[in-house]
């Protein structure tokens, strides 16, 4: 018993070390995805380019894709945009845009100026779909599989590192067979 007590501080220190090293990996600003492994919530919203075209959750199935939440008021989206262009054009990733709490005119100008990586854009003017998805800050990128199930969410800018280390493996897990696989 005495000998065990001698080692107690060491054991406690090792425990604390383990706990803290776990916390290093964890970003406290990142929320868990409440809708993980659940279907995309039902919606009916106009497309950005063609207001008469109504898009629904049925449009978000068929193959693994990224649903990118963006807005012209979001500076990080500006940073991210060139990489989305690259993903769509070079790697052949299907990227759908969720234009979140934005103005149609501004959004269209942005796409004309910076290029358009999106297959189509859902125009979520008052953020209803955003709220249903649990969006808390743009940019966010959701990985939706062929069955329309949300598999993952990345909060923040998607760049080369995020794509190769986080999104690509999960896209492949979801059955994606693109140019990068």
């Amino acid at each position: 018993m005495k000998r065990f007590l001698l080692f107690l501080p060491l054991i406690v220190a090792a425990g604390i070390f383990f706990l803290f090293s776990q916390m290093l990996e964890h970003d406290p600003n990142e929320l868990q995805l409440a809708r993980k492994d659940k279907p995309v919530p039902a919606f009916a919203l106009p497309a950005l380019r063609d207001a008469s075209r109504i898009l629904t959750e049925q449009n978000l199935r068929g193959e693994p894709m990224l649903v990118n939440v963006w807005a012209t008021w979001c500076p990080s989206c500006h940073v991210e945009h060139p990489y989305l262009n690259k993903l769509a054009k070079q790697y052949g990733v299907k990227v759908v845009g969720l234009n979140y709490k934005d103005e149609r005119e501004e959004a269209l100008k942005w796409l004309a100026r910076l290029g358009d990586p999106y297959v189509f854009n859902i125009f979520d003017e008052d953020g209803r779909l955003g709220l249903d998805l649990g969006v808390y800050g743009a940019p966010e990128t959701y990985l939706v599989d062929a069955g329309g199930i949300i598999r993952y969410r990345h909060v923040g800018v998607v760049d080369d590192k995020v794509w190769h280390e986080i999104l690509l493996p999960r896209m492949q897990e979801a059955g994606w067979q693109g140019a990068e696989s």
Binding site: L31, Q32, L33, A34, R35, L131, D132, L133, G134, Y136
Partner: peptide, 8 residues
């Protein structure tokens, strides 16, 4: 709200 944003 928990359904959307989690217990957080």
């Amino acid at each position: 709200l928990v359904e959307r944003y989690g217990d957080f």
